[in-house]
Design a protein around this nucleic acid. Structure first.
Length: 113
DNA sequence: GACATGACGGCAG
DNA sequence: CCTGCCGCCATGT
């Protein structure tokens, strides 16, 4: 078997990110925790970095646990992370998501049916 | 193959 | 409360 576990990990990240409801956001840690690599939140960010050219993946809805747009600089200039979020009704000020706690979403909600 | 870095997070001091 | 260090794992030099 030449399959790489990393692909599975990245794949799970992509699936979860695509499930983030519009107008909501989640964190790298929440995703990592849901997958199992809770101590490897950095890998979530790295995985998203591979998808920055994939418009099917709303990576802009993923921020750090502070609700801070730390990855803003990694987005294309014509599609800034901040602007995309604001278009979804999310208010941001100085790279900080306002009322972050209220719009925060976690993959764990998928368990709730 | 070793060293440094990174879209993070937790804990110690 | 704020600062600094470590862990975690993949990628780049």
């Amino acid at each position: 078997m030449y399959e790489k576990l990393s692909e599975d990990f990245f794949g799970r990240v992509y699936e979860i990110v695509k499930l983030i409801p519009l107008g909501r956001v989640t964190t790298y840690g929440a995703i990592a925790n849901y997958i199992g690599l809770k101590k490897s939140a950095r890998m979530v960010g790295w995985a998203l970095n591979q998808t920055k050219y994939n418009k099917d993946i709303p990576a802009h809805r993923v921020v750090n646990r502070q609700g801070l747009l730390t990855g803003k600089q990694h987005f294309a200039v014509d599609a800034s992370m901040e602007q995309l979020l604001q278009q979804e009704g999310i208010k941001i000020e100085n790279n900080q998501i306002q009322d972050f706690q209220s719009i925060f979403w976690t993959p764990e909600e998928l368990e709730i049916d």
